[in-house]
Design a protein around this nucleic acid. Sequence first.
DNA 1: ACCCTAGTTTATAATTATTCTAAAGTGAAA
DNA 2: TTTCACTTTAGAATAATTATAAACTAGGGT
Lengths: 135, 135
Amino acid sequence: MKKIDILKKLRSSGLRPTKQRVEIAKFLFEREKTFHFTVESLNKLLTKKSASKIALATIYNTVHAFKTAGHLSEVEVRGNKTYFDTNVSNHHHFYDSDTSELIDIDANDVIIQKIPKAPNGKKIKNVEVFINLKN
Amino acid sequence: MKKIDILKKLRSSGLRPTKQRVEIAKFLFEREKTFHFTVESLNKLLTKKSASKIALATIYNTVHAFKTAGHLSEVEVRGNKTYFDTNVSNHHHFYDSDTSELIDIDANDVIIQKIPKAPNGKKIKNVEVFINLKN
DNA sequence: ACCCTAGTTTATAATTATTCTAAAGTGAAA
DNA sequence: TTTCACTTTAGAATAATTATAAACTAGGGT
């Protein structure tokens, strides 16, 4: 994804393309494969990569803004870690608790034949499948 | 579950049946239906129910000891809440983010027809299905 | 029944993750 | 360029959980 597209992506979702947002967006979206991270890991990677330090609160703000805009999805797994995922399409996850690694599973690789009806007046928003791994 | 069974349950898993553990175990396991709770909610309920105050750290210790012994299972859902579940059989969950309520789904009510193979040298430990609800 | 000791509980401090606050900075519309 | 609502920032505040170390206790050995 080119810089011009980054700017479009931000503007089209009502986010002013500030220096910090552009830097974070470039880091997250200028890559081929999907990327999983926590706020903590992202902060470390950004600190290492660039000279200008971005405040931790800004990283929180920005990641949540991107999530609200639909540019990131949030995945929560055992161990109180909150991951974000640059893959926002409908998909599932492997979770390897040994390495704390999250791996995408394409939605087409999981077929659910039967699910129960939603209770009382509720509807089903989405179905998430976690496949926990061991060695 | 009677008191004698509570004592057996604790002893058989190598846990000394202290006053606090027995009180917590009775509260959790002397009921018909499965019970979902957070450490915080359990603390409030216990405080309300009994005269003797149990330290919060003890509730953490005890709940984790019960979990390690296989008497509770842990379920993590969006919103950084960690729930425990007195139903330790293999099953799935509805999650209602409006009410923060977790509802058990019997394993037989979910049939998964296709899942991907585990990566490299890994094996599949278990598969958890979350059905997120909306109004 | 009484000790003894490892296991347990407790209050409190420490840690960790996240959000809040309020002051300073900055895109971009006019 | 000026202006102002939106952003960023450092640091404080909050929340959830874990660590610490002293006091307590269940239960085996005497």
